[in-house]
């Protein structure tokens, strides 16, 4: 502490240590919170087609077309350790070939300060609902659920499942009309 430089060095180093400590406190204050909330999901129109999957094998695979309603309030999820949410809507089902299939149909980023009250009506999916075979036609138990990643200032990157699933079934006939 005998020269200006050593004092400057000590001040900077101590400030950074304190900053690390505060960040850890921020992490501790939010690590045990329960981020789950309810989301109401509903499907409006459900179709299934049998079309060649040029992205993969070029064989004819099942392609689902779904429009959905989504209603949820995520305002309570935000706190001082949440910078943004990455929402994604997953369809989960079982086929004779695979015990567990998960397809992400839609996603959305909500930044802090954005409107976190979602009331979406008749939304199209953002991504194709491909099955890797013919498991969608006449599938009686497809469940849709919303989950989100929390991008924090400091700490874990939790993936949270919303409560509230929607179960629907695909028709037993392929649709031939153009969408």
């Amino acid at each position: 502490m005998h020269t200006v430089l050593t004092r400057g060095n000590a001040t900077v180093a101590y400030s950074l240590s304190v900053l690390a400590c505060l960040t850890f406190c921020c992490f501790l204050s939010t690590v045990f919170l329960d981020y789950r909330t309810n989301a109401n999901i509903n499907t409006v129109r459900v179709l299934v087609k049998n079309v060649p999957d040029y992205g993969a094998s070029r064989e004819k695979h099942d392609l689902g077309f779904v429009t959905f309603d989504l209603e949820t309030n995520l305002t309570d999820v935000f706190n001082w350790n949440v910078k943004q949410l990455f929402l994604f809507l997953t369809a989960e089902y079982k086929t004779s070939e695979n015990l567990l299939n998960q397809v992400v149909l839609w996603d959305k980023i909500i930044l802090r300060g954005d409107n976190a009250v979602l009331d979406l009506k008749n939304m199209n999916t953002k991504y194709y609902f491909w099955d890797d075979g013919n498991g969608l036609k006449d599938n009686k138990n497809i469940s849709l659920y919303l989950s989100w990643n929390i991008i924090p200032n400091a700490g874990l990157l939790p993936s949270v499942l919303s409560t509230g699933r929607h179960t629907f079934k695909f028709p037993s006939e392929y649709s031939v009309s153009p969408i």
Binding site: L22, T23, C25, C26, S29, F78, N79, W80, N81, N153
Partner: peptide, 13 residues
Amino acid sequence: LIWGAIVQQFSQT
């Protein structure tokens, strides 16, 4: 830290 916790804004801290 206290102020940031009150306004729920870590940048303020």
